[in-house]
Design a protein around this nucleic acid. Structure first.
Lengths: 186, 186
DNA sequence: TTCCTTTTTTGATAATTGTCAAAAAAATAC
DNA sequence: GTATTTTTTTGACAATTATCAAAAAAGGAA
């Protein structure tokens, strides 16, 4: 689903808003395995994935810890950095050749002022992501590694093919070795 | 900090908005150990804690798992239930005698329409809570039980006195016995 | 294809945390 | 103040997951 139709599914997008959105966003192509944002830098943009796959990861004692994946139809950004305009703790990387809709922070802030109905968009999108995050927290807190993996397989089956085991393992909060063993015994 | 001054610290609250807020919210007193929302029911309200302490908890195999605490100046609600208007998975309980500002879902939705600038409030508050949740996720995923407890002591010292060990332990994703041992060795 | 690199699997062992049971301590009620 | 209930601590043991090391498998490049 494209950026505009995604937004249209949440609020009605007037013609003038559509024009404005087209003028402030940019479609960018990113080839596989590029770092779009590096940790330590401010993440000035939010990206909507039209095609491809992004992931955000932290470095924790030299190891890459996947914090999120963003597939087609999802947003990817270093949320803390983007919202607080502080340096990012995470690196955003393309796991495939991507087509992204890029929306800069400042344009979004102006958009909120110029088209107040987009505040609703921002609120609803954030609410949706909050609920997903809460689900994930509970899953990490109270499910076994195996249950979490099975849930991942059910909820994001396509990512199994599109990512590496290590990336999934760290997303689920387990080591790659443990995940490999879990897969062996299923 | 009261509900109104909390909101005023985020956006400028006009006189008419203030009047509206006063008319749609209700100050309620709740004595200690009351269940304000029971799991299985829809959570129709968001509560701002003027005084006292709330917690939200899940029942997981018969055990109470604390999902959040809300102290003075913070909001408490069953977020998923309130936003999605679905039955709540969690129970909200007063841990002390409380004075709460109660804002019903329907009034909030009307407020968003009547005072569009409040969409911004909703967005910013949700963003803030999202960032806190993300921090907590990372802490649970990558910190040891001891590190999480020490971080809790630093970030919410007053809750040590106001809650039980079991409530804190489940909030941190560990058993009460383990937390007791962690405390013994510090 | 063949080599080289990266990813995944497997093995042995250790560390962390959980479970179940009971005792000790603290809080509350009468 | 004493009894009762609740909370916290301690002990013994088990389960889960991590760590370190190495082998096997898979994927890419020339």
């Amino acid at each position: 689903m494209s950026f505009l139709s995604h937004l249209s599914s949440i609020i009605s997008v007037s013609e003038s808003l559509e024009t404005e959105l087209n003028s402030i966003t940019k479609q960018i192509s990113v080839s596989k395995n590029q770092s779009i944002i590096n940790f330590g830098n401010r993440c000035n943009d939010i990206f909507f994935v039209e095609k491809g796959l992004l992931r955000g990861y932290y470095l924790e004692e030299g190891k890459e810890i996947t914090n999120w994946f963003a597939q087609e139809g999802e947003f990817g950004t270093s949320f803390y950095s983007f919202v607080a305009m502080k340096p990012s703790f995470e690196t955003i990387q393309s796991l495939e050749d991507c087509i992204l809709t890029q929306l800069p922070y400042s344009s979004l802030q102006n958009l909120y002022v110029k088209f107040p109905e987009t505040e609703r968009l921002g609120r609803i999108i954030t609410e949706t992501y909050y609920i997903k995050l809460e689900e994930r927290l509970l899953s990490i807190q109270f499910k076994t590694a195996k249950e979490r993996y099975l849930n991942f397989v059910l909820s994001k089956p396509s990512l199994l093919q599109r990512t590496s085991l290590g990336q999934i393992a760290s997303y689920l909060g387990i080591t790659q070795e443990t995940l490999s063993r879990i897969r062996a015994e299923i």
